[in-house]
Design a protein around this nucleic acid. Structure first.
Lengths: 143, 143, 143, 143
DNA sequence: TTTT
DNA sequence: TTTT
């Protein structure tokens, strides 16, 4: 095909730590859930409704290692990437999942450095400790 | 939460017709599969590999009706929307699917008008017959 | 033409306060400069170079009023909008400027509420006090 | 700063040919104007108004050469890039211009190959002959 | 003019 | 499971 575009832009909060898996040969893959949410007032009941969507973010190699090092549960990040469908079989049943394979990631808050450095002045400004791009040195891997 | 962003931008081709469902009261929902693909050369085998991802696009109300009217299988469209997770139970098994709820859609080709209007001059330029936005008149519905 | 897309996505810091102008009839327009920057290491000299770009953000009506109320110099915001070219004559010379007409704006930090509410607990997490969209109630105006 | 994002996404038509300039050492820079437009009905006069914006797209090195080779006036392209401000002096007057420095470009029509290959079957589907990314091999140049 |  |  070509002439196609597949782009996702998310700003959300990590629902859990980054789980990283190392392959033989040095490649690695990391995963974390990211929450985005919308709040609106129901036209039927008048009550305020918050709707949260969870996104499976996948990071690879250097980007995975940086994420594991600097991101913690609750952090707010900007993620840019591609939608990828993964399918596998579990107990004879076909399972499908949609993942966001990140190509760019920028921190918009940094709990971890604040936690680890109690003397660092804390203010309400977000601090970006990482802002990295994924380059496809080796994307010809079985994941 | 707020302070979050959930945005998807796709340019791809329809893998099938738009399937529309009308609700009592006039609301409607339409769905179609959209393909994006990447072609790259494997570093291991040297062969050209095409990787296709399929996206479940969801359109509502006026946007759904326009899509059903003007889009056909094979058409190329620009879609902007949000990632939404849907879950349901089938045979006692929890199923999950990720959908792209379109908020904007622009045609980049128009097979249908060309087919139906054989006298229309055909050229290699894409013609946009629709370019519409979804406004949330009534998004407080059970879909 | 149609079949065209004009979209800008920025995350940056306000270089100055929001300047708002009210028209007879209640319409309003606000403007503020937004900075984005890149840091890289020069391949020639080895020194670290920071490159800042300044963007003229334009907001209208309700969005303008919210921005004036909640945003202050230094705040970090997410802005989505369109590129618009403006031209005018000054001393007989044609001048051109490019503006970003915002359609969506989300705060990623909130200095103002923190300043004004000294008792509010301050932490390193960005807080979003506004997240608004511009709807074109009346875009047929001379600005 | 860091923690900032500067992203532009355009789909539009070339208003002129790609003008390329080669530097000593093999680097090159190309430029072309890209038009996007909006059509709306005036609430005051009821007439249909088309509003066109022109964008100065800048491409470098390999991407510049591919654009010069394959793009012609009128072609429709998807461009992703960054907003950059350029300033220079002309007749003692400071001039400013905003450019879109492209990082990704995908063709959505191909007049040139159609022109040059009269036997090629012409249909209303856009064909993508190029889809390329800019990688910053050498961005430490005086342009 | 911002920010780290 | 996040966040406000």
């Amino acid at each position: 095909m070509a002439g196609t575009i597949n782009k996702v832009i998310l700003i959300g909060n990590l629902g859990d730590e980054v789980k990283i898996h190392y392959f033989d040969g040095g490649d690695s893959i990391g995963r974390f859930p990211l929450a985005t949410s919308e709040t609106y007032v129901s036209k039927q009941t008048g009550e305020k409704i918050t709707n949260t969507d969870w996104h499976n973010v996948v990071v690879k190699n250097k980007l995975a290692e940086i994420c594991e090092k600097y991101l913690v549960k609750g952090d707010k990040v900007y993620v840019e990437g591609k939608l990828k469908n993964r399918q596998w079989e579990q107990d004879g049943i076909k399972r499908y999942a949609t993942e966001i394979h990140a190509t760019e990631l920028t921190m918009l808050s940094n709990k971890k450095s604040a936690e680890n450095n109690p003397n660092v002045s804390k203010n309400s400004q977000p601090t970006s400790v990482i802002s990295v791009s994924h380059t496809d040195e080796n994307d010809d891997l079985p994941f």
